[in-house]
């Protein structure tokens, strides 16, 4: 950070998601995804020792052994900085290459242990204050929606959207910082685990799948504009099925044009090492893996990653948010 004094608490992007929604994995994959970019323009670095350790260990585990990060046990706060290509004021170069400094985007991850939000969809007081402070401090929020949790528990959507909306309305009511009646944040809503068969199939049934002609592996994608439709469909499968209402509610508190939807996968689809082309008949990149310690048959078996990790839409939401934050810095408009 250039301004060292206030830098420690300065957050550009906050990340939220239910336990097990894939927050930690997304971050581990972010580092892989960045290094896979042909431009090699962005890097991620830890803001302190534990955060650096986290990155190194989880990235290695994910791409090397094929292991997912362990469920977060403690109330962790990780701080990372994305270092990108230098940008001049207002995005214009001044022709002084010697002076360039890297563009920085700070990511602050609140990584609460699974289940700390309780099972009644109500946040604990501590979590509420944490969430409020994160909303107040950050300019962009990455929100993870776990479709698998939605399939299995039917509450992934409600899990955080409901408290988030509640908090937003409280903030709007109690403060006059928001004259236009909306929170100024940019919101990247990420549907995670796109690689899971049920998610892929839902997208396929809705004919939302496309491929990037430049992608040699021909991995399927859901275009940005169709992501919200997939989200609605995924939510309508759940018992509660009030996703459209919730999505409308969200636009009461945030600017509609500051919300973007992404269909993401941290690990990506399986790629046969011989064929090297995506095969719709065999897309799943997970393989069940029995831990040696607990041979209990009752628990669903944990998974390992089957092949290479090919993250999908992991960098995009982060960079989009980062870009928005940078723009605001550049424009000098106060974010909150």
């Amino acid at each position: 950070m250039s301004d060292e004094g206030s830098g420690r608490d300065h957050t550009d992007i906050a990340m939220w998601g239910a336990p097990g929604s894939g927050k930690t994995t997304l971050l581990a994959a972010l580092s892989i995804a960045l290094s896979r970019r042909p431009q090699q323009d962005w890097r991620i670095v830890g803001g302190d020792a534990p955060s650096t350790d986290f990155l190194i260990q989880n990235t290695l585990a994910l791409s090397g052994v094929g292991e997912f990060p362990e469920a977060t046990k403690d109330r962790n706060r990780y701080r990372w900085t994305l270092l990108g290509p230098p940008a001049g004021k207002n995005g214009r170069r001044r022709g002084k290459p010697a002076q360039v400094t890297a563009t920085r985007i700070n990511i602050n991850l609140m990584d609460p242990p699974g289940g700390s939000f309780g099972d009644s969809h109500h946040l604990s007081t501590a979590d509420k204050s944490e969430l409020i402070s994160s909303l107040e401090k950050s300019k962009g929020i990455i929100f993870l929606f776990d479709p698998i949790r939605e399939f299995e528990k039917g509450d992934a959507f409600n899990y955080l959207f409901a408290p988030l909306s509640q908090l937003a309305s409280q903030m709007l009511a109690s403060s006059d910082k928001y004259p236009d009646g909306k929170l100024p944040h940019h919101l990247a809503i990420c549907i995670t685990k796109f690689d899971e068969l049920r998610v892929l199939q839902t997208a396929s049934e809705l004919t939302l799948l496309t491929t990037d002609p430049d992608d040699v592996h021909q991995f399927p994608r859901v275009p940005q504009d169709d992501a919200a439709q997939l989200l609605q469909e995924l939510c309508s499968i759940s018992a509660t099925g009030n996703a459209d209402i919730m999505l409308n509610t969200l636009t009461h508190f945030f600017h509609e044009d500051r919300i973007k939807y992404y269909v993401t996968s941290s690990i990506g689809f399986y790629l046969d090492p011989m064929r090297k082309v995506f095969d719709m008949a065999d897309p799943v990149n997970l393989v069940p893996h029995a831990p040696l310690s607990s041979p209990s048959a009752a628990e669903p078996m944990p998974s390992r990653i089957r092949g290479q990790v090919h993250p999908i839409n992991v960098v995009e939401p982060v960079l989009w948010l980062g870009q928005q934050v940078l723009n605001e810095h550049a424009n000098g408009s106060p974010a909150g």
Partner: peptide
């Protein structure tokens, strides 16, 4: 022969 539910397809 094709990915189905939770079972991986035959290679």
């Amino acid at each position: 022969p094709r990915a189905e539910a939770r079972i991986l397809p035959c290679p």
